[in-house]
């Protein structure tokens, strides 16, 4: 049920990173006073920050007159909205019917183990967020995962982990380069 998306009061709250709320200004002026603007505003905010920061909720409520309670209700209803910061790479493992039949469960299991996170969590280094999605619509390539814009098909647990490892290697090379320069 959708109420499961509401964060439990018992989970440890991590301090939220500082965000530049002025980035919201053009978005708010575009949608202020428009009918049915709540979802586009929340989508826009998430497009800017990757998630919807607490400050963004407060600012949108203050400047558009939308009720904070209703915004929270909408944000927790739809699967798209995130209330926590996400990793640099979002790994979306497809769990549609076709992927399920072709053993998508083993892909998620392998990634959970390799990344040491649970479904929906972000790795400690802030690099990867692991998500399960209903259907990416590439059923003939099942099982499938998507990282950023890139889709990987006909996976096994092992080559899914290999993809992650390659990204890690590429990332560490890049950080080395920036350190050198």
């Amino acid at each position: 049920m959708r109420v499961q998306r509401i964060p439990s009061p018992h989970t440890e709250k991590k301090p939220e990173p500082e965000v530049d709320l002025s980035l919201l200004d053009p978005l708010i002026s575009k949608y202020r006073n428009k009918k049915g603007n709540m979802i586009p505003l929340l989508q826009g905010a998430q497009a800017i920050y990757g998630y919807i920061p607490r400050g963004a909720f407060l600012k949108i409520a203050r400047e558009t007159g939308l009720l904070l309670s209703e915004m929270y209700g909408v944000a927790t209803f739809y699967a798209q909205f995130r209330l926590q910061p996400v990793g640099k790479y979002i790994i979306r493992v497809c769990h549609g019917t076709a992927c399920h039949v072709q053993n998508a469960g083993s892909i998620t299991d392998a990634l959970k183990e390799a990344l040491e996170v649970n479904d929906g969590e972000t790795t400690a280094d802030g690099m990867f967020t692991l998500e399960s999605v209903a259907c990416l619509g590439c059923c003939s390539l099942a099982p499938v995962m998507m990282i950023g814009e890139e889709t990987y098909g006909k996976l096994t647990g092992r080559n899914a982990v290999k993809v992650i490892r390659e990204i890690r290697i590429r990332e560490s090379r890049e950080t080395d380069k920036t350190k050198q320069s």
């Binding site: 769990h95 019917t97 076709a98 209903a134 590439c138």
Partner: peptide
């Protein structure tokens, strides 16, 4: 809003 997992006709 084609939500059925395993369907991609509309897409």
């Amino acid at each position: 809003d084609e939500g059925d997992p395993g369907a991609f006709m509309d897409r």
